[in-house]
């Protein structure tokens, strides 16, 4: 195909004017590297923006005006309406946990640890993390979609012209409500999760009901529970913050809102898992 003049000149263009394979590969590599670099820079910039946004949110929380009605509304939608989701998640998780620990414990004749491990596992780790993730799916998405739509339809601009700061009116009530509601949700989830383990324990694993409960209570320390609730508060803050942040940054049109919703759920989930690791380290690392 290649003419004699082009022999040994692979990086040059071929006769039909298209770049040769080597040059194309090089261009592709450069583009790939550039894209990696670009997204890294983009990520760093986003981290900075999120940090600034979080700081702003916190400072606005302590300065009037406060929008009580918005706060109560947010408390209802974020807290109360998330109860079924969080409760069901905890129930099944507690049950599965009991089965797993029983099976695992049987390998070294330690089936008796089921009640205490279920309780500790639920309140310290699975209650807050799974509760946080479920709420991230539900709440971060709905906040981002709602605020994103408001952005796209100029409702945010309208708020500004009506002398209302969107940060105070939209972000603060939601973030505050989620931060306060999540510990309660996690507490309820903990109890239901332990109940799930208990039900499996006394029905399929032949535990004595009274002994199961005694074991649960005896080995559970206050700090186990409290640390989980603190995690819950942190996750609530993250979920609502990500919903608001991505909603406010939403691009134009329905596509922009869709994108913002995905970004909110993904970033909230990842941040929850990262924050969980950091908090666990902080609370329990020897």
């Amino acid at each position: 195909m290649t003419g004699p003049g082009a022999a040994g000149a692979a990086p040059k263009g071929t006769e039909d004017g298209r770049p040769g394979p080597a040059r194309r590969l090089l261009a592709w590599l450069m583009a790939a590297l550039a894209s990696v670099g670009r997204s890294s820079l983009h990520l760093l910039a986003s981290v900075g923006q999120v940090a600034i946004y979080a700081g702003l949110t916190v400072t606005h929380m302590v300065r009037p005006p406060f929008y009580g009605r918005e706060f109560l509304n947010a408390l209802l939608t974020i807290g109360y309406f998330s109860l079924p989701v969080v409760g069901l998640t905890a129930l099944f998780t507690g049950g599965a946990l009991a089965l797993q620990i029983y099976a695992g414990g049987a390998r070294f004749s330690a089936e008796a640890v089921v009640p205490s491990i279920v309780a500790i596992g639920m309140v310290r780790e699975l209650g807050p993390v799974l509760g946080g993730l479920m709420v991230a799916g539900r709440v971060a998405a709905s906040i981002a979609a709602e605020i994103g739509t408001m952005k796209v339809t100029e409702q945010i601009d309208a708020l500004v012209t009506l002398s209302t700061d969107p940060m105070k009116y939209l972000t603060v009530p939601r973030v505050l409500a989620a931060t306060l509601a999540l510990p309660v949700l996690v507490g309820v989830g903990d109890a239901i999760g332990i109940l799930g383990g208990y039900l499996v324990g006394i029905t399929t694993l032949d535990f004595n009901a009274a002994a199961y409960l005694k074991n649960t209570v005896d080995f559970l320390e206050t700090w186990d529970v409290v640390s989980g609730l603190i995690k819950g508060a942190a996750f609530g803050f993250i979920v609502a913050l990500m919903g608001c942040f991505h909603g406010m940054r939403s691009g134009r049109g329905a596509r922009g809102v869709g994108r913002a919703t995905i970004d909110a759920v993904v970033s909230a989930s990842i941040l929850i898992l990262a924050a969980n690791f950091l908090l666990t380290n902080l609370f329990f690392a020897a």
Partner: peptide, 20 residues
């Protein structure tokens, strides 16, 4: 900003009503 905006009213081209 607050006292400035308090003097203004604005009708947006697309209405921009709060649907909630």
């Amino acid at each position: 900003r607050d006292s400035f905006l308090a003097r203004f009213g604005m009708l947006f081209q697309a209405g921009a009503l709060f649907d909630s």
